[in-house]
Design a protein around this nucleic acid. Structure first.
Length: 424
RNA sequence: GGAGAGGUGGCAGAGUGGUCGAAUGCGGCGGUCUCGAAAACCGUUAAACGGGUAACCGUUUCGAGGGUUCGAAUCCCUCCUUCUCCGCCA
């Protein structure tokens, strides 16, 4: 959520910042409501001040048994109070209108975010790792995984499209990846959290999934939401809190299932494990002071890259352009892993600095030692990594001519000594 | 699911209709003392919003939302939530 004061002080700059990501101008409309609201508030508060003053005088008059003076004052307050409900209602509606408008606006892109309307505007920052040359035709992961233990038909029978059943060695490799990556981020300084997977609407509002993107997530019959990412649970750990500056940064990591309705992506990535309604992900979240968030963003992205390095998976880092970023982000790096079967780079991690955008929605603040007042924290989140897509990458990059798949060295400790997955 | 008790400032914890934004303690900050520190002592210390160049003034906030009242932390209703006991349960 934006600071209304930024909009007031320079509406043109406000609209210009949002225009960078394709959002329509809103400043004039919000400003009109805000201006009227403030006039109403002033009038309402003047009435409340007089009422409070008179009420104290009534108490004083009654204390000295001056019923006549009390009656006069009570009559005055009675008149005053007739006007109050209408003003209160106008203030309530005005405040809700401004708030709803601000909640629906995406974050403003950081200054160093490139211009662009969609993924074609993204800028490659660097590439890492060696793209292996295959002396046979590399298969896509779903073809490879079938004989190893991947059963989309069983999943479809149980749950429908976009679900997977993993079996035997593939299930174990999947579990090993999750454990390995979680352990890696714990070693990198993140505190492991086992969070709720069902959350309130308020939590989804805090991180920005609501109110605009309700159709992207699953909603339960008792009015909770299945988390589309552990970012929701982890970031909301600091909601409505005032942290000491000395407690920052906070670094959290969790390995959780994530649930996405994938409304609007019908027909895309229908085969295989790339796009599922349910998938596991290792998620990192950092809570920092405003001064520290940029460096933390680089650090976090580095933590995600370290996993790809350790697994020996080639990848590139992309700086997303203004038009391709998520709603809450002010700057995002995507990591894209090379998939030899598909012959292209695919997103496997996304690391975003949200600035104070989510903190304002959650009311997450910090207090600097000795300083007066509070400030909003900065929040960052990043995948380190998406487990299902990492499994895809390992399968495709470590495949051999006979359809077997080598286990990356880094995973040996989590695979009980298994070095190669062989077709049944 | 049944019964009961709670939710107050950064934290702990008083406060059952008026002068209560709220005692007290802890913590924080400033000072005295000290070569320095500790201890002790003194002072100070909530947030958000509106108005104002500012000093400052005002409003709101005691889990949330309604209500009663001239006036609500305090009384009433609904909801959320925590704890205790019972029941059920992986």
């Amino acid at each position: 959520m934006h600071d209304i004061r930024a909009l007031r002080s320079d509406p043109a700059a406000f609209d210009a910042a949002l225009a960078r990501r394709g959002a329509a101008p809103e400043a004039a409309r919000v400003l009109a409501v805000d201006t009227e609201l403030r006039a109403v508030l002033t009038e309402l508060q003047e009435g409340q001040a007089r009422r409070n003053e008179a009420s104290k005088a009534i108490g004083a008059a009654k204390a000295v048994r001056d019923e006549g003076a009390a009656a006069v004052l009570m009559a005055e307050v009675a008149v005053l109070k007739e006007r109050m409900p209408a003003l209160e209602e106008r203030a309530r509606v005005g405040e809700a209108t401004v708030r709803d408008a601000l909640l629906a606006l995406p974050n403003a892109p950081a200054a160093d975010v490139p211009e662009g309307a969609d993924e074609h505007g993204n800028v490659e920052v660097h590439r890492r790792g060696l793209v292996a040359a295959f002396d046979f035709v590399a298969l896509e992961h779903d073809e490879l995984a079938g004989p190893l233990g991947y059963d989309p038909d069983a999943a479809a029978a149980i749950s429908g499209a976009r679900f997977a059943v993993l079996k035997g060695p593939v299930a174990r490799l999947h579990r090993a990846l999750g454990q390995y990556m979680l352990d890696a981020q714990i070693a990198a300084g993140y505190t492991e959290i086992a969070p709720p997977l069902l959350v309130r609407g308020a939590a989804m509002l805090g991180t920005g999934q609501l109110p605009k993107f309700a159709e992207d997530s699953f909603h339960t019959t008792d009015d909770r939401w299945l988390i589309p990412t552990a970012e929701v649970s982890l970031t909301n750990l600091v909601r409505e809190r005032i942290l000491a500056e000395t407690d920052l940064p906070l670094r959290f990591v969790a390995l959780t299932p994530c649930f996405r309705s994938e409304a609007g992506s019908a027909g895309r990535d229908t085969r295989g494990l790339i796009r599922q309604h349910q998938f596991d992900k290792v998620e990192m979240v950092s809570i920092t002071t405003p001064d520290a968030s940029e460096a933390e963003h680089e650090r976090m992205t580095g933590c995600a890259e370290a996993v790809l390095d350790a697994l020996g998976l080639p990848y590139r880092r992309m700086l997303l352009c203004a038009g391709d970023m998520g709603f809450s982000a002010r700057k995002t790096y995507d990591l894209e892993v090379w998939l030899p079967g598909q012959g292209q780079y695919r997103e496997i991690s996304s690391c975003s600095n949200c600035g104070d955008f989510q903190a304002r929605r959650m009311d997450a603040r910090f207090r600097a030692a000795g300083a007066k007042g509070t400030g909003f924290v900065h929040t960052l989140n990043g995948s380190g990594l998406a487990v299902g897509r990492t499994l895809v990458a390992v399968l495709e990059n470590y495949q051999q001519a006979d359809g077997s798949v080598r286990v990356p060295d880094a995973l040996r400790g989590h695979m009980g000594g298994v070095e190669v997955l062989r077709p049944a």
